[in-house]
């Protein structure tokens, strides 16, 4: 493994790219740590955002006004303001307020704030994608379900949601790819993700271009993996004879 790395670094040096920092344990350890942090950020916020999305979509398509309005207001505020500003507000204002009242008992770490803010932000986008899916389910299909004596709950879980998710899937995958790239905002509040780790390394050395290429490739691959996973789910849920 390390021999392969040596060869690779040697080859890249011929192109004028100095990746020798990868051979130092300090820098490479920091990068690896950052990469893992980014992976965990993605994983937690994908789960979190999907949860938030389903709840918001349920609220916003509900017939109950008192559920509908707050959810709609939340979605509008959230998706019309920048994630970075939201993160600053959450971490610098809310976190400080919690610190003041709870002191050291504050359970929120910077990592948790990033997951929370991204989950809420992307959840608002998921909710809109899911709403499109829910509204695309033909009323007559639900009528068929109710004429087969399905309860409201069964209609929702057996017919409406399975169809809505299928309709919304391309838009959801789109959101998730965006989510992967969005995790870079974590570096703004010093969470040691791959972006922050890179910044820390290049401020001490002369390898900005090399690190840029590295993290762009990393995010690219990560997004691509999400894309592939999304395609696989799409293929698995495909309804033969419906669409294509």
């Amino acid at each position: 493994m390390s021999e392969l790395l040596h060869v690779l670094v040697g080859q890249l040096a011929r192109l004028g790219l100095n990746y020798s920092f990868l051979l130092e344990s300090h820098a490479s350890g920091k990068l690896l740590d950052g990469a893992l942090t980014t992976l965990w950020l993605c994983l937690w916020s994908i789960v979190g955002s999907l949860l938030v999305g389903v709840l918001l979509a349920a609220a916003v398509t509900s017939a109950r006004r008192w559920l509908q309005w707050p959810a709609r207001a939340f979605i509008e505020v959230t998706r019309n303001t920048p994630t970075l500003v939201q993160l600053y507000c959450a971490f610098l204002v809310l976190n400080m307020l919690i610190n003041q009242s709870l002191g050291n008992a504050n359970p929120m770490t910077p990592f948790a704030w990033v997951v929370l803010v991204i989950s809420l932000h992307k959840g608002a986008f998921h909710a809109e994608a899911l709403r499109a899916g829910i509204e695309a389910v033909p009323a007559v299909t639900l009528e068929a379900a109710s004429s087969l004596a399905f309860s409201r709950r069964q209609q929702l879980f057996q017919v409406q949601l399975p169809l809505a998710v299928r309709f919304a899937l391309p838009a959801l995958v789109n959101n998730l790819i965006d989510l992967v790239k969005m995790t870079a905002v974590a570096s703004a509040i010093a969470v040691n993700d791959i972006t922050y780790a890179s910044i820390m390394i290049w401020t001490q050395g002369d390898n900005v271009i090399e690190l840029m290429i590295l993290i762009l490739a990393f995010y690219g691959l990560l997004s691509f993996a999400v894309n592939c996973a999304g395609r696989a789910v799409e293929a698995r849920l495909r309804m033969p004879g419906y669409g294509n």
Binding site: V140, E143, A144, S147, A149, V159, P162, M239, G241
Partner: peptide, 15 residues
Amino acid sequence: KQVGFVFQQYNLFPH
């Protein structure tokens, strides 16, 4: 549960 209904547009569950 007692009354079956068949629609003009079939309305099968496509998934």
